[in-house]
Each structure stands twice: as structure tokens, then as C-alpha cells.
Design a protein around this nucleic acid. Structure first.
Lengths: 200, 200
DNA sequence: TTCGTATCGATACGAACGTATCAGAATCCG
DNA sequence: CGGATTCTGATACGTTCGTATCGATACGAA
């Protein structure tokens, strides 16, 4: 009977507006009014899509997590696919702010992590992503060990933890690089990490 | 002639108040009023110590950077001191949130990094710290190589970059651990990092 | 077409923010 | 001890925030 809007699309476009704002000035600059303007909507329209601001941020976080998870899962190692070393390098290189979208995402993630440090609800979302990442890394490392691609004498679980640390550290290190800085530093770190973990 | 207060002490105690607040609820919860209440001062007193809020946050950041730099510089490797492996482990273990002060500091740093991602002024402070850290790590790694303590065939500059990444990654990984989580994961990561970098 | 209802945009509201102001209290020097 | 001056704390101001409200609008079913 009544007018009906595509709620899902509405929410998606609002989430993108949030990310554009957050990429410019951090999560602190994200206000309902700003989001509405950025998305070309009225405040009321945004309010109907997301009753509270917390819903707004939660959805934006979920969206971002999904995007990163999807990017990761596209990189597959295995027979006739990538070797472990190639896959690890691909995952790490994919984190680098090589384009504007990635640069924006890194800024946003820095904000999310800061919030997760004091907001259990946000922490839980990231913890879930961690669980998935850990599982993926464990599988990859097990495969690598079976293929003899791994530096011997290392505990796989410990290596997984180290790789988690390196992944987080890599994008965080990039987060505070001034725009336009060349990425040779982070690239060297990736080289060193791959070299140390892979069999010589 | 006039009344005089110990400005330096005043500023220091205000900075500590900021850190207590930020440790609880992030940098977003730091307002001039809150800081005044937390420090047991009036708004006016805080305003005299720090004309604007930006001055407030800048000072708190500088204070925190100094504290971390001081902690680092207390760990010294060399003859009759620590071996490289011991020193590296000590530096990394020192980052873990093993007490309330460190836990608070990690939360605050997450907030600072998020801000640095969108605020060049903050980014510069952290970049300066990076420069110092890189120099220290380069010296340590050079010493380690000369002592034969280093995994051979690795470029020192690349290893420095990797260690920078690991350092950032380590505390960031800890930042989103729920309070009370045991630190066996991060500790395993430290073990793996030390084992991989040090000579076998 | 028309009626019911979901959507809309504008506006209102109270709270909190950073900052400015200013009369009085507190302090040190001559 | 008195007066010059800095410090103090309360209060005010103008914004901006998240959220609530509400008539107008637009659309699908009858």
C-alpha cells in the first residue's frame, strides 16, 4: 500500500557516505547531519535507515569487515594455485595503501580499532574477524609445512600469532605515513617477513 | 608580585587526568570539563594551563611519547649487557599490557594513531618517534650482525622495517583483547619473532 | 480514483561541547 | 602592609550534536 524504498541499497549508500567522511576526517567527524549531506539525503531519511548513530557505525564497520574478509578470501593457496610464499606476500601487499580506496580504508580501520579498544561491541566484531583470519592462516601454514615451504622448527600456532601481529602492524604503520609517501619501507618489511617465514 | 602556580606540575597533572579519561573511554570522551573534574580543577584553571583543547591533546601525546621512548631506552644491548635476542624480547614484552598502566597506554595510543591517520600534526609527532626507534633498531641489528647473532642473508634495513611493523602490530593486537584475556597469544608471537630474527 | 500508510524533509529540543568573560580571591614585592 | 597582578571559578555564548516530532508527500492496493 505505501511508498517503499530499497532499504538495503539505502543502507549501503549511507555506509559509503560514512566511509568517505571517515576517510577525510576520522570517525569523530561522522555526524548524522554530515552523513545525510554526504549521501544526498535528509536527516530524516538517514534516521529511518538507522535509528541511532550507533546502528550507523556498526553497519559501517560490518561493511568494512566484509570487504576486507572478501579481499582476503580471494587469495587462495594450494596445488595449481599460489605457493605459500606467494600467497602470504599477496595478502600483505594487498594491505598496502596503493590506491585511494585502500588509503581511506586504513584510516577508517585505525578509527575502528581505537573504538574497539574502549567499546566491547566493536571489539567483538573485530575478534570474530580475527578468529576467521586465524583459521585461514593456520590452514595455509599447515599446507606450507606439508609442502616443505616453511622455515622448520617453528610452532605453527606461534607463527599464526606472529602473522596476525604483522598484518595489523603493516596497515597501522602505513596509516600514519603522509599521503604520497613511497611504500618502499613497508614493502621491505613484507620482503623480510616472507623471507623469514618461508623455507630457505 | 602576583600569585604564581607551578605551571609545569599543573600541566603534568592535567595530562595524567587526560590519560585516565582516555583509558576509560577513548580520546572522544576527553572534554575540557571532564579533564577539569578529573584533575580536581576548575575549567578556568585548565584553560590557563592549556589555552585550547588542541594544546591539551598535544601535550598529552608528547607526554605519552616521552614515556614510551624512556621505557625503550632503558633496554640496552651490548657487551656485558643484554644479547640482541634478549634485548629484542625485552622490548617486545615491555609492550604487553601486563599492568593497568600499560593497558591504559595502549588504549590511548590506539586513539592517537587513529587521530594521526587524519591529523598531520599528530602524525608528525609519531613520525619523529619512528625516526628515533628506527635508529635504535638499526644500531641494535648492526651490533647483532657483528656478533653473529642475526639470521644471515637478511638486509638490515628491511629487518628494521619488519621490526617496526611487529612492534606496532603487537600492541595493536593487544588493544582489542578483552580485559583479562591471557597474553599467551602475543607471547607466542614474540617467541616466534625472536626465534626467526635471531641466528639459529 | 481514492484511501491508507510508509516515507519525507524541516524543524524543535535538550544536552554537551570549546571558548570567552569577568569580578573577586590569592599572592608576592617593595 | 598595601597595591599591583596573576590566578580562580562561575557563568555566558554560540555551535553542534543525537534524537524526536509532525504535517506534507507519494505511492500501492482496493
Amino acid at each position: 500500500m505505501p511508498k517503499v524504498v530499497d532499504r538495503q541499497n539505502r543502507r549501503r549508500s549511507v555506509a559509503e557516505a560514512i566511509h568517505r567522511i571517515a576517510a577525510r576526517g576520522g570517525l569523530e567527524e561522522v555526524s548524522v547531519r554530515m552523513v545525510a549531506t554526504e549521501a544526498g539525503l535528509s536527516v530524516g531519511a538517514v534516521q529511518r535507515a538507522f535509528p541511532t548513530k550507533n546502528d550507523l557505525l556498526r553497519f559501517a564497520l560490518d561493511t568494512s569487515v566484509d570487504e576486507v574478509a572478501a579481499r582476503f578470501s580471494r587469495i587462495r593457496i594450494g596445488p595449481e594455485l599460489l605457493t605459500f610464499a606467494e600467497g602470504l606476500r599477496a595478502v600483505l601487499v594487498d594491505l598496502l595503501p596503493t590506491d585511494e580506496r585502500r588509503r581511506a580504508q586504513i584510516r577508517i580501520w585505525a578509527a575502528y580499532y581505537a573504538r574497539a579498544a574502549v567499546d566491547p561491541e566493536f571489539a567483538k566484531v573485530l575478534a570474530d574477524l580475527d578468529t576467521r583470519s586465524r583459521a585461514n592462516l593456520t590452514a595455509a601454514l599447515t599446507y606450507a609445512r606439508d609442502q616443505g615451504e616453511l622455515t622448520s622448527g617453528q610452532d605453527i600456532d606461534a607463527l599464526v600469532e606472529l602473522l596476525m601481529v604483522i598484518i595489523d602492524g603493516l596497515w597501522l604503520t602505513c596509516a600514519r605515513l603522509p599521503e604520497g609517501t613511497d611504500l618502499s619501507g613497508p614493502r621491505a618489511a613484507i620482503d623480510a617477513a616472507v623471507a623469514l617465514v618461508s623455507a630457505r
